[in-house]
């Protein structure tokens, strides 16, 4: 049950689509895999799509927040896409703000936003 989250490369951008509920191990592994892949490919941006995710707790929120900060440190831009209404509501009620991150409704809009940001 410890499958890794696939990270795809498209030109200078990495695309991650999280397809199933994250357990702690998978989340930590993902953090490491993404940073390594960014280093290898010298990617300029990352889109993380959370469409199928139906809840986020404080642990996963922390991992996600750390990923966003680390990606920023490595000089890349991050867009988070597909946050469901129920997830947005519970995150705010938990008291969690994902600061300094661009968001978009879906993967397509997220990629658009990222490319515009990279051109600017």
């Amino acid at each position: 049950m410890n499958a890794r989250i696939p990270i795809l490369k498209l030109n200078e951008v990495l695309i991650v689509s999280i397809q199933w509920e994250l357990d702690d191990q998978t989340a930590i592994q993902f953090q490491e895999d993404l940073l390594n892949k960014m280093h290898e490919t010298a990617a300029l941006g990352v889109v993380i799509d959370l469409t199928p995710i139906d809840f986020i707790d404080s642990f996963i929120a922390k991992v996600l927040g750390d990923v966003i900060n680390m990606t920023g440190l490595m000089g890349a831009k991050v867009v988070i896409t597909g946050i469901q209404p129920a997830v947005a509501i519970t995150l705010i009620e938990l008291g969690i703000r994902l600061n300094n991150v661009m968001t978009a409704l879906d993967l397509e809009n997220g990629l658009d936003k990222l490319y515009k940001e990279l051109e600017a």
Binding site: F55, D57, A86, T90
Partner: peptide, 23 residues
């Protein structure tokens, strides 16, 4: 989540209950 769904909670409350249990 299953129990919340069976009890008739909507998706937002299901997410709240699931998150609370996870914490």
């Amino acid at each position: 989540r299953n129990e919340a769904k069976k009890a008739g909670f909507g998706t937002v409350d299901q997410a709240r209950i699931t998150t609370a249990i996870s914490e």
